[in-house]
């Protein structure tokens, strides 16, 4: 964002980053019966990422979030759908969930595991992916949509920027050139 980076802000945000993600994990974990859950946890994690992008500049984000956020979201949706499909494979109604209760573990006491947790993780991934994608696009768009990085340009604007009649012809010329 700015050219001059504040060292103090950077260090502070780095500390907050880990703290926020810890909070996010806590929210995700308790979400089954208590207030919390994938959506809120995802928002907390996304906020942590946004803070870091404020400190480091949005260009540095691929180093921290090594996946394309859209793929992260798609993977989360896949995980959430997958927990529903699992029940279908077992011959049960779509999205039926199963639980496993484990008693007497050291440290944890009673542990309550189940496919709803996986579903929540899916929601978490969707929210992190979608929110960070949106806000990174917003941050980059301050320099105009045309100034988005190359990859964004390809994805968000049409390859057919000319009027209909021109573009059809252009597409066709291209076809002819590549014809075997």
């Amino acid at each position: 964002m700015t050219d001059v980076r504040s060292y103090i802000f950077d260090r502070l945000v780095r500390g907050v980053f880990y703290l926020l993600n810890l909070v996010a994990f806590y929210l995700l974990w308790r979400g089954h019966n208590l207030p919390g859950g994938g959506f809120i946890a995802g928002l907390a994690s996304a906020i942590s990422l946004i803070l870091r992008s404020l400190a480091l500049g949005v260009e540095a984000m691929p180093r921290i979030l090594r996946m394309d956020p859209m793929r992260l979201a798609a993977g989360g949706l896949g995980l959430a759908t997958g927990t529903g499909l699992g029940a279908m494979v077992a011959g049960r109604p779509f999205l039926e969930h199963f639980h496993l209760h484990v008693h007497g573990l050291p440290w944890f006491g009673e542990v309550h595991l189940g496919t709803p947790f996986l579903f929540d993780v899916g929601v978490y991934l969707i929210v992190v992916g979608v929110v960070s994608k949106m806000l990174f696009v917003f941050m980059q768009s301050t320099r105009g949509l045309r100034a988005l990085v190359e990859e964004e340009e390809r994805r968000y604007s049409s390859p057919l920027e000319q009027p209909l009649e021109e573009s059809a012809r252009a597409a066709n010329r291209e076809d002819d050139r590549h014809a075997p």
Binding site: M70, R71, A74, L77, G78, T81, G84, L85, M88, P93, F94
Partner: peptide, 18 residues
């Protein structure tokens, strides 16, 4: 399951395509 499939199949296809 036939009732769920019209919803689930396009969803999974969309994800695979993504």
């Amino acid at each position: 399951h036939l009732v769920t499939l019209p919803l689930v199949v396009p969803l999974c296809t969309a994800l695979l395509l993504l």
